[in-house]
Simulated assay, not measured.
Amino acid sequence: MKRYIFPLFFLFISLAHIQAQENSNRTLIKAALHGWEYEVKAGISIGGTSPIPLPAEIRSLDSYNPTLAVPIEGNAIKWFGVKKKWGLNIGLRLENKNMITKATVKNYSMEIIGDDGNRLAGNWTGGVKTKVRNSYITLPVLATHKLSNRWNIKAGPYISYLLDGEFSGDVYEGYLREGNPTGQKIVFTDGAVAKYDFSDDITKFGYGIQVGADWRAFKHLKVFADLTWGLNDIMKKDFKTISFAMYPIYLNFGFGYSF
């Protein structure tokens, strides 16, 4: 009798899996008949967090590294009408908005951290390295339109909540005017650097607009590109060290699977 236990067990598991798959297929078919479509997406995010336009304090952008960021997203799409040309897309996305840049600046408002941990505020002239690594959970609500059997376009607002944030970097090869542009001059040369960290000053909530397009390569496989443009400063309202607002602007592109 014992020799039949394991074959019967595996047969039971297989039948249960088949039944669960059949139930899932029936649910998806019913949803499709009522105008619902579901999809999951993953890709790569490239962009930057920047003032618009670049202020006079930033004299040149010397280097840019988007670093690796992989957004993961799930969407529910409700199609309306007989022809189902128009729909409403509601999603949930886990994403990173990253970048590392180097720039040459003049009279750039700054607060550096000394070796003793004390902070010194003033106006910096010289090199600045900035590292941004922000993780968000984002809710896009988009109007979507079928241009053809393969092409969809979409646009609408999004809101984001910050899960983890970093805005930090170094200053190098320059000098700091303590307090104001005519204050005491503190020079950094011969490879000397000073750090700064504004991570605690990043705002928790962000909002903006998103536009994009999907191309259905196969029955279930999509290729997508989405541009997100933040409309509020990533820093808190009471943060005054950086004298201009900074906005996250990122392009997400990759593949999606439609159920």
Rank of each mutant, 00 (worst) to 15 (best):
K2S: 10
W79K: 02
Q184S: 08
F6P: 01
D116G: 15
A103V: 04
F6S: 07
R133F: 12
P7A: 11
Y247V: 11
K84N: 10
A32D: 11
T101H: 02
K237V: 04
K85F: 05
D115E: 14
Q184M: 07
L176H: 07
V171W: 12
M110V: 03
F80L: 12
Y196T: 04
R150A: 12
W215D: 00
Y4W: 09
F6E: 13
E22C: 01
T125M: 14
F218Y: 11
F239L: 06
N232P: 01
L147Q: 03
K85C: 04
S45D: 08
K102D: 10
G212K: 07
A155Y: 12
G179R: 08
K83G: 01
S60F: 10
R93A: 14
W36V: 05
I18E: 08
N65E: 12
Y175T: 00
G117Y: 09
R216M: 10
E178T: 11
A225L: 12
I5P: 01
K84Q: 15
N96L: 03
G117N: 10
R216C: 06
Y4L: 14
S168Q: 08
G254V: 05
A121N: 08
T241A: 09
S168H: 02
K97G: 05
Q21N: 13
H17S: 05
E166A: 09
M99P: 00
V187L: 02
D164W: 04
T130A: 13
V171Y: 10
G81E: 07
V211Y: 08
L54P: 00
W151D: 01
S109K: 07
A56Y: 14
N180C: 05
I18D: 03
P157H: 13
F167E: 00
T130L: 15
K195V: 07
W124K: 04
M1N: 06
A217K: 10
M1L: 10
K185L: 14
Y257V: 15
I13S: 09
V70K: 03
N252E: 11
K240A: 06
Q19C: 05
F10D: 01
S135P: 00
E73V: 01
Y161P: 01
P7L: 14
F10V: 06
M235P: 01
Y38Q: 04
N98R: 12
N107F: 12
Y4K: 07
H220Q: 07
T27D: 12
A31R: 05
Y250R: 07
T130R: 15
R59I: 09
G169C: 10
Y64P: 00
P157D: 12
T138W: 02
Y250Q: 07
